[in-house]
Amino acid sequence: MWDYTDKVREHFLNPRNVGEVANPDGIGEVGSIACGDALKLTFRLGEDKKIAEAKFQTFGCASAIASSSALTEMIIGKTLEEAEKISNEDIAAFLGGLPKEKIHCSVMGQEALEKAIAHYRGEPDKVLEGEIVCHCFNVTDVEIIRAVKEKGISTIEDMTGYLKAGGGCGHCHEEIMNLISKSRGIAIMTPKKPASGLTNLQKIRKIEETLESEIKPALIRDGGNIELVDVDGNRVLVRLQGACATCSRSRITLKDHVEARLRTLVAHDLVVEEA
């Protein structure tokens, strides 16, 4: 049972401004179903250049819905210059606080607002800076380092609560811990040997074998196929073909089927990615 404040509960049960603004000036979409939460924020400016109307659509838990509702209330009546100063802490504070595991819900609100304002101003989408560290939630090293420096985050749990990084398979925990240590000026652990105990050559051969015997037959049955492109450390690069290449659920196929199977049969730290 999460310890939600009365205000979170109230905004969850009676959310304000649900829906989509007709002919919006700004649109900001963040998150995805695979990530477990997503928010679409739309707003319209009045003649006074203040936000006259703002609405949200949210897929997510109670605190995601409450954070979205709070965000719309906070920005209505503000100029964009005022609105863009709203931080995730402000959203959480407006709700009387959020459980630390749920801080990412307020971060999602802030990101959607940032995107919606950028959209209004015609600014290009921000390109992902840095290298992806957490492949489950697409979080980069730059974001992680920023969270350490700006928010003082020092543990993996808090990083997961804030950015979701490390909240999935857990294989990036060591790398996140190293980034935290590095950013805080602490000596880094040396990377361990691959957990599978296989040599690279053995590993590649086993991956090939497993793809051939265990994975391809099922995909071919569904009109698709898969090709091994490269193996780089624990990253397995593949190309989906046939029906799989155009299927909107291919990421799920990759993670839930191909990766799960390879982890069971080859090595538990493998990460499958599309080449």
């Binding site: 999460w2 969850f12 049960l13 997510g60 838990c61 109670a62």
Partner: peptide, 13 residues
């Protein structure tokens, strides 16, 4: 298309 915790908390009412 919806999330379980939200369903649980609404049923909790």
């Amino acid at each position: 298309y919806i999330e379980g915790e939200a369903i649980l908390l609404m049923m909790n009412q």
